[in-house]
Nucleic acid binder design. Structure first.
Lengths: 196, 196
DNA sequence: TACCCCTCCTAACAACCGTTAGTTTTATTA
DNA sequence: TAATAAAACTAACGGTTGTTAGGAGGGGTA
């Protein structure tokens, strides 16, 4: 009889969530079926329900764990006593790192969070908005202190966050450039601009 | 008996595609059903098949018409005899305009093109790659002529294209900033950077 | 009026969906 | 080794999916 083999100290539920992240990333949440997932886990579909409550719980797990991760990071950055332009740089570096090393999860969250059902949908939506507001506040303070160009802060945040998600294409390409160089190029462009 | 009312000189098929764009944008391609769509069109699901061949044909229609639109634009820009930094600016302005005024289609294409089936999937993928290569070539020429900072051109293109897609969030927000101001802010950030 | 054709309808198909019930196998503990 | 708990299995549920078949309405032309 087939068994779920959990690598390392991961629970079986964690193993399922991990495989789900990969599947959802590849096919999208709605186009992924529990039978798809079961096949990848190496088990029958019904067996999954010994470990999880529903398909949607998987999405919740993915979304909220990622959100927590991002929140923890900005908690730390807010506390720091560094120039605001450096705080922005650190936020960017974190997003880039996540996009490089945890892109499956990040992409699923960004693309499929709308498929959460209430009340999780509203919860997540609020968390997302709050997170962006915190970054916006940092940018605005940077502007006030003349460290940052006088631009519309919410627009700047939108651009920063979405620009980074372009890295997903980098993953699928020939990767003529290293992850480190990629990171430096992105920072250079966003902080100093394209023009000379 | 209900009838499809086509606004203006649009064929009924065009009307269906338009409603489909909106529906796919809201729920995603996979989560949208033909019965959903039929309801919005004001007709029974089966009746749609007098005008279209399949659900996927709708996605094809949306993707390839958008692709053609973008290709036509870059055709024109390549022919122009203007500084390369200005060409880049024009490309950006076009993308921003599309994102503001045609965002439903743009978002559907960006998010759901992967659900195309062969051979359309490969076709579209190639078109996409070719389009990006053309922009990359412009950026590289701009670098060679010292109009653009010496950065990794493919990375710059990824950032440009994805940064603009952040505008989607602007649509749903309170819109404290006008479309024109939004456009100028984006260009300022991407061309001159965030830092002062 | 009689014809045709386009477009709508109802009904239904087979396939697939997420999920549950009930049972059997495997692992753990005593 | 026997008892218990955990986790797998098979079978099936009610519902939804995209799509097709066949018939009916209704406007245009002869």
């Amino acid at each position: 009889m087939a068994k779920i083999k959990s690598s390392k100290n991961a629970t079986k539920k964690e193993t399922i969530v991990e495989k789900a992240s990969k599947l959802f990333f590849e096919k999208g949440f709605s186009a992924s079926s529990m039978r798809d997932l079961a096949e990848r886990v190496g088990v029958e579909a019904a067996s999954l329900y010994n470990h999880i409550r529903s398909k949607e719980e998987l999405l919740q797990e993915i979304c909220f764990k990622a959100a927590q991760h991002y929140t923890e990071n900005i908690d730390a950055i807010e506390k720091e006593d560094t120039p605001f332009i450096q705080k922005i740089e650190k936020i960017l570096r974190f997003h880039i790192d996540q996009m490089i090393n945890n892109y499956e999860v990040v992409q699923v969250v960004d693309r499929d969070w709308k498929h959460l059902s209430e009340p999780h949908l509203t919860n997540y939506h609020n968390e997302r908005r709050a997170y962006r507001k915190r970054i916006t506040a940092i940018v605005e303070e940077g502007i006030r202190r003349k460290e940052v160009k006088d631009i519309d802060a919410p627009t700047a945040v939108l651009i920063m966050l979405h620009a980074v998600s372009g890295i997903e294409s980098w993953h699928r390409s020939v990767q003529k450039i290293s992850a480190k160089d990629l990171e430096e190029n992105i920072l250079l462009i966003l902080l100093k601009g394209l023009g000379k």
